[in-house]
Design a protein around this nucleic acid. Sequence first.
DNA 1: TGACATCTACTACATATGTAGTAGAGTTAT
DNA 2: ATAACTCTACTACATATGTAGTAGATGTCA
Lengths: 122, 122
Amino acid sequence: MTGTVKLSDQQYAIMQVLWDNGSASAKQVQIELADEGWAHTTIGTVLSRLEKKDILASETVGRERKYRPLIQEGDVKRSMVSNLVSALFKGDSKQLLAHLLKEGEIDKNDLKDIGDLLDKDK
Amino acid sequence: MTGTVKLSDQQYAIMQVLWDNGSASAKQVQIELADEGWAHTTIGTVLSRLEKKDILASETVGRERKYRPLIQEGDVKRSMVSNLVSALFKGDSKQLLAHLLKEGEIDKNDLKDIGDLLDKDK
DNA sequence: TGACATCTACTACATATGTAGTAGAGTTAT
DNA sequence: ATAACTCTACTACATATGTAGTAGATGTCA
């Protein structure tokens, strides 16, 4: 069981860098997330905390300390989306879909496109 | 601007009772959320905090203190879904839709049903 | 090798949240 | 009226998070 993982936006953004790269140094994270304007020490703190919670592991490779995710992005997504659906849509994903349509986040064509993709992949 | 509202699961559950009823007393909330097993004082604390943040208002009506939401459920949903899509799906709602399909949360028939509904409503 | 640059670990502090006890005001039943 | 009950306000405390400074370890360049 992967259990329920829930990350803050900040934590997710940082994990995203690790996922995208397989693993990364604090420096790399800092560079890729430069837009956010977080102090490098802030990134370091968040990384340590995630390590303490076994969400990632770190090891020194040569002179670099590499941070490596211990959980899969897909698992976290599943867990977080599922959590949102439970909390906001009474556990009914179709209501989320309906919401997306109603808010114009997606439209009928998107539905159709994805339906077509499914047919093809099958 | 409604700004960005983000509620914890617990806060959302409590607001949900207010939204469903227009407004409600702490007692009512407590009863409707009995399953959660929260102490009534816990509900009270959460209600006060939400009031302090102008997410709800309270007024004494007769001998009852009624709590009334100051923000709409739709706005909170929009805001929270949008936040999730930004954080997890690079802001692309279609990716969320794809995720739901991939995880089997919804299937092709759901897509079709909703598409039909849209046609009808139009 | 000594001054400087890097990087991580540790410390610090404010806010948010989960959780609930206690006190005090008001209500009610006998 | 007085004891019992109800309800909210206040207090309390632990954990999580956002944010970042400082110190100490290590690496690098002149």
